[in-house]
């Protein structure tokens, strides 16, 4: 019997729970629950992205909605051209739309990565509250740009009538789409665990603690942080593409600062820097929204109270409460 920490048991328990969830929901004859679980998986993935920057790297980005939204629009733009059979560009070369998820994901990842590179290059020269404000400012720029750009729906957003396709899978079946999202969530978790345990991860955490000291060992902190920020943005961008596909709708609200705040709330609720923190955060968030959202329009007020409680009394988030302080083994 390997000596696993309580956190590991908790992680395994949550993973298994999510894996069998569609069967439970089907048995309960509540297929809508599968859609809720899909949202959990997608929001988790978005927060896994932010957790890499925020938790491991200490980069408090208040603009991750930018990447989430860019991922969403990557899906929206490609799929809308595919459904109207019009090319996106005809000059200098023809780019057609597509309804293939694999291509959409790739485009979402690349586009949000480019955006993160650009935003990171400028914002990582600052730190602390300025970093927060600059990331927010960039996200708002993109938000207002999409509002005022009529080609893709402007403020009204863009509807996609049929869910995009994945080779060999019926994506319209809620369970199948859930498993696609879940696998990507696990991939995101795996990647962030790998990064955290690598030399790069060690250097990133060192940069979080003391940049000057890291520089004195011959590593330029800026490069480390930029790389982490770009990977973080890419993961969140992929989540955006999935969310757009789940809703079959994309609007500038995905880019708004509310969204940035929501992703950050997930990370803080679950536990900053903890591997499964984003997943636990998303679980709490969605369950809360489902139960209290049905009772009152002001459910976020109560979520705010919980968040306040976590910040004041449980600094390790829900994971810290359930599994104790982070352990190294």
């Amino acid at each position: 019997m390997p000596n696993l920490s309580r956190e590991t048991y908790l992680n395994i328990f949550i993973s298994l729970g999510l894996l069998v969830f569609p069967f439970i929901a089907t048995a309960m004859d509540e297929p809508f629950y599968i859609t809720l679980a899909t949202r959990v998986a997608i929001l988790s993935l978005a927060a896994v992205g932010l957790n890499l920057a925020l938790g491991t790297g200490g980069l408090v980005s208040f603009g991750h909605a930018a990447f989430f939204g860019i991922g969403g629009y990557a899906m929206g733009i490609l799929a809308s051209h595919a459904q109207t059979y019009t090319p996106i560009f005809t000059w200098p070369f023809v780019i057609e739309g597509t309804n293939q998820m694999l291509i959409i994901w790739l485009v979402a990842i690349v586009m949000s990565g480019i955006a993160a590179l650009f935003i990171g290059l400028l914002s990582l020269r600052t730190s602390g509250v300025y970093f927060i404000m600059i990331t927010l400012a960039f996200a708002q720029m993109i938000y207002y740009f999409m509002i005022s750009w009529p080609t893709y729906g402007g403020e009204d957003g863009l509807s996609i009538y049929v869910r995009n396709q994945f080779p060999g899978v019926n994506t319209l079946d809620p369970s199948s789409f859930f498993y696609i999202c879940l696998v990507l969530m696990f991939a995101g978790l795996g990647l962030s665990a790998m990064i955290k345990n690598s030399r790069f991860g060690a250097a990133l955490q060192a940069a979080r603690q003391n940049e000057e000291r890291l520089a004195a060992t011959g590593i330029r902190p800026f490069n480390i942080k930029l790389t982490a920020f770009v990977i973080s943005g890419m993961i969140t961008g992929l989540a955006g593409a999935l969310m757009a596909d789940l809703n079959r709708f994309i609007s500038p609200s995905m880019l708004s600062w509310h969204m940035s705040g929501e992703i950050m709330v997930l990370v803080i609720l679950g536990g900053v820097g903890r591997l499964y923190g984003p997943v636990v955060g998303a679980l709490i968030y969605i369950i809360f929204e489902f139960i209290f959202g049905g009772l009152t329009d002001y459910w976020q007020f109560y979520l705010g109270l919980i968040l306040l409680g976590v910040v004041l009394f449980a600094r390790g988030g829900a994971i810290g409460l359930l599994a104790g302080k982070a352990r190294h083994d």
Binding site: A206, L214, G218
Partner: peptide, 27 residues
């Protein structure tokens, strides 16, 4: 530092949030 200056700063400053081995391997 890359040219070859290896500093052991005053006040034995390690990266507190990393393990011993991570401290050694990181740089």
């Amino acid at each position: 530092a890359k040219l070859g200056v290896g500093l052991v700063p005053e006040g034995r400053r390690c990266f507190a949030n990393l393990t011993v081995e991570e401290n050694l391997v990181a740089a």
